[in-house]
Design a protein around this nucleic acid. Structure first.
Length: 282
DNA sequence: ATTTCATCCTGGAGGC
DNA sequence: TGCCTCCAGGATGAAA
């Protein structure tokens, strides 16, 4: 589910709502989602965080990081259907709660995940400066540069392989933050056929793609992300970018530019949507 | 060294 | 109503 714009939207909501809040209790209902050094000692992590205070919320690619004043940070990778919701327990009982934080005062934060692809790490000594290194040591995959701020030269190096460009855009070790929606949308904006071998793109196409990625990501953030079924921000609201999608999940519908029917193919095991006229094979 | 592919899950949609 | 198949914003480890 959540790609960079959705995670950024969640992070923004959490920054506003939970920074400064004191943790009364951290309840882990589904310990199987905990990975890393606290995988077996998750109770210890929960105990350690009780009484702590939320100091900062940040994001790296699709990962969300909640810092505390307790030397333990909570790192969450939301998978396909992970989400955070703020609501009172009396309001309604939700299914699929995997862990929750009860704050002093009357706030609660719930982490829900239908499909359980999401994962949580309790990280020691994590800072903004060392995070990439520390995350790798903890067994998380390597992350490429943030997709909305890649440099020209850096991007050309990333493209120097013969994989289909679509697969490359989804590879978090190469580019951090893009998922299936925004990879397809970026390629449409850049008028590039998704199956094109990355090293066949000329420098002008590469630069257009780099800028398209940035534009798509920033616009999606501004519109609160994309909701199909699951995504919600921390208040339970849907994202507003769905109606602005040009190709993703529009198979058979007319291209917004040329009216040709949007097609869907498989690339690297993922559905890929494109306009056969605007994004010509070469 | 790269790259592809099955697998981990649940639930909604649509066909019969 | 039930049963079946297909599909889904992701990441990973094994295999080729």
């Amino acid at each position: 589910m959540p790609e960079l714009p959705e995670v950024e939207n969640i992070a923004a909501g959490l920054r506003k709502e939970i920074i400064g809040q004191g943790i009364r209790e951290l309840v882990i209902r589904n310990p199987a989602i905990v990975k890393g050094s606290y995988q077996r000692s998750w109770r210890k992590a929960a105990g350690q965080l009780a009484g702590g205070r939320i100091t900062k919320v940040s994001r790296r690619a699709k990962r969300l990081i909640i810092y505390t004043d307790k030397e333990l940070a909570i790192l969450v990778q939301l998978g396909m259907t992970g989400k955070f919701l703020l609501y009172e327990p009396e309001e309604e009982s939700q299914k699929h709660v995997r862990f929750s934080i009860k704050f002093y005062g009357d706030k609660y934060l719930w982490y829900l995940d239908v499909r359980r692809f999401g994962r949580v790490w309790f990280m020691e000594g994590l800072t903004e400066e060392n995070m990439d290194e520390v995350m790798e040591q903890a067994g998380l995959g390597k992350l490429g540069p943030e997709s909305d701020s890649i440099q020209t030269k850096e991007f050309q190096e990333i493209l120097s392989c013969k994989r289909p460009v679509k697969s490359l855009l989804l590879d978090q070790a190469k580019i951090g933050g893009l998922g299936n929606i925004y990879a397809d949308e970026s390629l449409f904006m850049a008028r590039i056929y998704p199956g094109t071998r990355a090293n066949k793109l000329n420098s002008m196409q590469a630069n257009v793609l780099r800028k398209s990625i940035r534009a798509v990501i920033r616009k999606a953030i501004a519109h609160g992300g994309t909701t199909f079924s699951d995504f919600r921000n921390v208040y339970g609201d849907k994202g507003g970018f769905r109606k602005l999608l040009k190709v993703y999940q529009r198979t058979g519908e007319p291209c917004r530019k040329c009216k040709t029917a949007i097609e869907r193919i498989q690339i690297g095991g993922r559905s890929t949507h494109f306009c056969p006229k605007c994004q010509v094979k070469k």
